[in-house]
Nucleic acid binder design. Structure first.
Length: 878
RNA sequence: GGGCGCUUAGCUCAGUUGGUUUAGAGCGUCUGCCUUACAAGCAGAGGGUCGGGGGUUCGACUCCCUCAGCGCCCACCA
């Protein structure tokens, strides 16, 4: 068949992806083979593919395809996450654009809209993954809020409640005034902010001299909630305030001065305003000193009636207003510029308001104890290992997890409140009712008397079960699938969710499945642009992966991605790398075109050079395959790719194919042809995990294939390196040096390719058996052995052997002298270093024998080379 | 404030327990080639003394100390 000179990815990609799916090649069922399991980090159900996904999914697909070709039963389970806050926010926004307020809808109405949204936008990202080439078992596609996963979440909640690990209580939580929900500590990100430090005057009550204390604060808008002022009892400069009472500026409320060593004497004036309702530390002080707590904020961050002033206004507007009002009232001592860190909602970006509220919590110490050892002792391996530190630090300082969210989109908390107070926790309403009757002693209770908790659970409370719940392991513990696929093999994810997700999956794994959820965790880097900026929608510096695929082909983009993705380092993505990937595809394509165009003549004997080439390439292939395997074992995917890339382009294409290529329109012998096809097949296997589409296309054309066959499931069979390989490879390196040496002379002298060159070798030719090959590659006549090289020759060394190209009148004696002198200088410096070492008795005594022997070899070689060069120079200067 | 990591050719990175010919790769650069598989290509060339300083050692890019710069994570100093 005729192939175009350029590879056209678009048609090939669609064709083979459909073929793979149609033939069920991604599907996995338990069988006798070793399983290789990966669960996808579920993207947000309404999300669209970005470069982070592109990187992540490519790595997973590479690992999965590699395992599949190794003969393992590879199972990659796809799915999406309901992403409680993010999705609810999107739905609320859409409703708002239609003039509908969430508050005006019932829970059921709102959820209907949310499901509509999910049906509309959900699954887009899964379709996009197919474009990338992801070989997921789509028949297993799951959703964190589908029936099975929901049952699992509820069952786990009830289980943990009964174990006494879940409790409900009033605590200081992180309140997101925009989403109007509590958040976990992990969902708060601290951002540095250039703000102001305000110094406020708190007049001392009844002080005849009109003295006042000065309090420094970044949040003057909270003074309405002040219920005390605090000094450090050891602070000499504030002794005079002991036992006094002060007046809150503008508000006029009189509050006591309390003493606590918590206060930093050095900060500001050493006087701290205490607002127990709106600061975590102040809350602690309030508890300790029995202070009243005044909650001055509404849930949306506006001032509540309890504030007395500025009621209904936004907290940040109030900050500006109150600054002016305090100045006008003469109660502002001064205002300084100040840089501090403000906790913000990871999702909505707004400043978090610490708020006292009733929430559900999960006790974490038990889980930390469960999850720390396996990571520290490498039962679960982190790649790179540096994240073990991060992990340990978090677990050693674990705090209880606030799992309730004041949202509707999510798993509703399975707690039901009784009319007379109290509540029961149950897997469903029926069970709740019977528990409630029992608890209240009232058998007449009906379902209508019970009121289910309005809150939903944190999204991560479902994600942490993912590796188990995907195999129905929560609802049907110990089932066959779970036993076969669990623990999963590798998890590929970003370090940004190490606490949110990775740590919690480890906890859930041991708690609910009795074993680790995965054996290895591969942490990818963050994708940045080439200026090092994080890719983001706001900056507009994130290319659309699908558009890249349109331009470079999926294989090209996958390769571009992996070329810049060393494990654990951030990715400096540059579109040019996709171009490199595309070029490589084209190279592979054209190599195939060459080989495919050959006519075989069975009567032809195999030329010596071709025999040598096939033997050598076999050795090289075995060596590189072993190297690649080692890279995979260490999760050095980009190194594995680079090794394959060089094997294909440099060794196979530039050297091997040139060695065996028949003259134009001449046929090739059978032995060489078969060996070449064989090598090509091996190369396609090595390439396939990185470039699934083009390798399938070429593999199908390489020889006749039966319907349903695929390179995907055809095992890779490259033998382990053989004993003789190393010598073979070394010899060929010398051949290459000789050829390059001749080509170098040719290039320097501008001698056309078709002009045959005569080459001399001084003494004897260690590469005599490769003469035919050298002639073919370098365009030379048979190498002549001479006693001393003649005039009009340009010489170079291969090892310690001197070769000289006859160039007659083209000789530039000055240039030859300069070249030889430069090399001589280098060698003498080198020799001096070696001899200094060997002259050091302690080196000869202490260093291992092999090292000393090597130095002696270096010395001998360098000496020989120097002698040769000196002769050359003498001859040139004659 | 604490912890971790990084600093090797113009760019992005390798360099595994210190010794493998006075440091390697890819890309880019320069020179010459449209040589009928490939100009998304071929051949050739140049380019770093391993952030600065000190130390350990027969020997350090590799180990230790220190300084500088960069990055990340954690933390209730208003």
């Amino acid at each position: 068949m005729e192939l175009q000179t350029k590879y056209n990815p678009a048609e090939v990609e669609t064709k083979w992806y459909e073929y793979w799916e149609r033939n069920g090649l991604f599907a996995s069922r338990p069988d006798g083979r070793e399983p290789y399991t990966v669960v996808i980090p579920p993207p947000n159900v309404t999300g669209i593919l970005h470069m982070g996904h592109m990187l992540n999914e490519t790595i997973q697909d590479i690992l999965v395809r590699r395992a599949r070709m190794e003969g393992k039963n590879a199972c990659w389970v796809p799915g999406t996450d309901h992403a409680s806050i993010a999705t609810e926010a999107k739905v609320v926004n859409r409703l708002a654009s239609q003039g509908i307020k969430k508050q005006d809808l019932t829970r059921e109405e709102f959820l209907r809209h949310a499901w509509d949204w999910t049906d509309e936008h959900g699954g887009i990202i899964l379709r996009q993954l197919r474009r990338v080439g992801a070989s997921c078992d789509w028949s297993r596609t799951a959703f964190t809020m589908d029936e099975e996963r929901s049952r699992s979440v509820i069952k786990v909640f009830v289980d943990l409640y009964r174990k006494g690990l879940i409790y409900r209580g009033v605590r200081m939580v992180n309140w997101d005034p925009k989403a109007q929900t509590a958040l976990s500590d992990e969902e708060v990100v601290y951002k540095e902010e250039h703000s102001k430090l305000y110094y406020l005057r708190y007049m001392v009550e009844g002080d005849a001299e009109g003295r006042y204390a000065v309090v420094a604060t970044t949040r003057p808008e909270t003074i309405m909630g002040d219920t005390a002022m605090c000094i450090n009892p050891t602070d000499p400069k504030n002794q005079w305030l002991r036992g006094k009472r002060v007046i809150v500026p503008l508000v006029g409320r009189v509050i006591p001065v309390i003493e606590d060593e918590y206060v930093d004497v050095e900060f500001g004036t050493g006087c701290l305003k205490v607002t127990p309702a709106h600061d975590v530390n102040d809350y602690m002080l309030g508890e300790k000193h029995n202070l009243p707590s005044i909650d001055i904020f509404n849930d949306d961050g506006t001032l509540a009636p309890a504030a007395g002033l500025y009621v209904g206004k936004d907290r940040f507007d109030v900050r500006r207003e109150i600054e002016q009002d305090l100045k006008d009232a003469g109660l502002m001592e001064k205002v300084e510029d100040y840089v501090n860190k403000v906790g913000c909602s990871e999702r909505t970006g707004v400043a978090i308001e610490p708020k006292l509220s009733m929430q559900w919590f999960l006790k974490m110490q038990h889980f930390a104890d469960l999850a720390l050892p396996p990571v520290m002792n490498d039962e679960i391996k982190f790649h790179p290992a540096k994240y073990k530190n991060t992990y340990r630090h978090w677990l050693e300082n674990i705090k209880d997890w606030c799992i309730s969210r004041q949202l509707w989109w999510g798993h509703r908390i399975p707690a039901w409140y009784l009319p007379e107070g109290g509540y029961v926790v149950a897997e469903n309403e029926d069970e709740a009712l019977s528990l409630a009757r029992e608890k209240s002693g009232n058998p007449a209770l009906t379902a209508a008397d019970l009121r289910q908790d309005e809150d939903a659970l944190d999204t991560w409370f479902s994600s942490w079960l993912w590796p188990i719940s995907l195999f129905d392991g929560i609802t049907r513990p110990g089932n066959d699938e779970l036993r076969y696929y669990y623990p999963t093999s590798d998890l590929v994810t970003g370090p940004d969710i190490i606490f949110f997700w990775v740590a919690r999956m480890i906890m859930a794994g041991y708690e609910f499945a009795g074993d680790k959820p995965f054996r290895n965790v591969y942490f990818t880097g963050i994708v940045r642009d080439k200026q090092g900026r994080k890719m983001s929608k706001q900056l507009g510096n994130s290319p659309d992966p699908l558009e890249l695929i349109d331009r470079f082909g999926a294989d090209g983009v996958r390769m571009g991605m992996m070329l810049c993705a060393p494990a654990g380092n951030d990715i400096l993505f540059d579109e040019a790398l996709c171009g490199q990937g595309r070029n490589f595809c084209n190279k592979v394509w054209n190599c195939f075109r060459l080989v495919q165009g050959w006519q075989v003549d069975d009567t032809l004997a195999q030329p010596q050079a071709s025999r040598q080439a096939t033997e050598w390439f076999g050795a090289k292939l075995r060596a590189v395959a072993a190297e690649v395997a080692d890279h995979y074992a260490k999760y050095r995917i980009s190194d594995a790719l680079m090794a394959v890339y060089r094997l294909f382009w440099d060794e196979f294409s530039s050297w091997y194919l040139e060695m065996v290529k028949p003259a134009y329109q001449q046929p090739i012998d059978r032995a060489t042809y078969d060996a070449t096809l064989h090598a090509f097949d091996h190369l396609l296997h090595l390439l396939h995990p990185f470039m699934p589409f083009i390798t399938e296309e070429l593999w199908q054309h390489l020889v006749e294939r039966a319907p349903g066959e695929s390179i995907m499931v055809s095992p890779q069979q490259i033998a382990a390196p053989a004993a003789a390989d190393a010598a073979l490879i070394r010899a060929m390196e010398d051949v290459k040096s000789l050829v390059s040496g001749v080509r170098g002379v040719r290039a320097a002298k501008n001698i056309p390719q078709r002009e045959r060159l005569n080459v001399q070798v001084v003494g004897s030719n260690p590469l005599a058996q490769y003469d035919e090959m050298v002639s073919k590659l370098a365009g030379t006549a048979p190498v002549k052995v001479v006693e001393a090289k003649g005039e009009g020759t340009s010489a170079f060394l291969v090892g310690t052997t001197e070769y000289a190209v006859e160039i007659g009148a083209l000789i530039d004696t000055e240039a030859e002298i300069a070249k030889a002198e430069a090399e001589l200088k280098h060698l003498r410096g080198f020799l001096a270093g070696v001899e200094k070492k060997l002259g050091n008795e302690r080196f000869v005594q202490n260093a291992p024998e092999a090292v000393v022997a090597l130095e002696r070899k270096k010395q001998a070689d360098a000496t020989a080379k120097i002698a040769t060069l000196e002769e050359t120079l003498a001859a040139l200067r004659k």
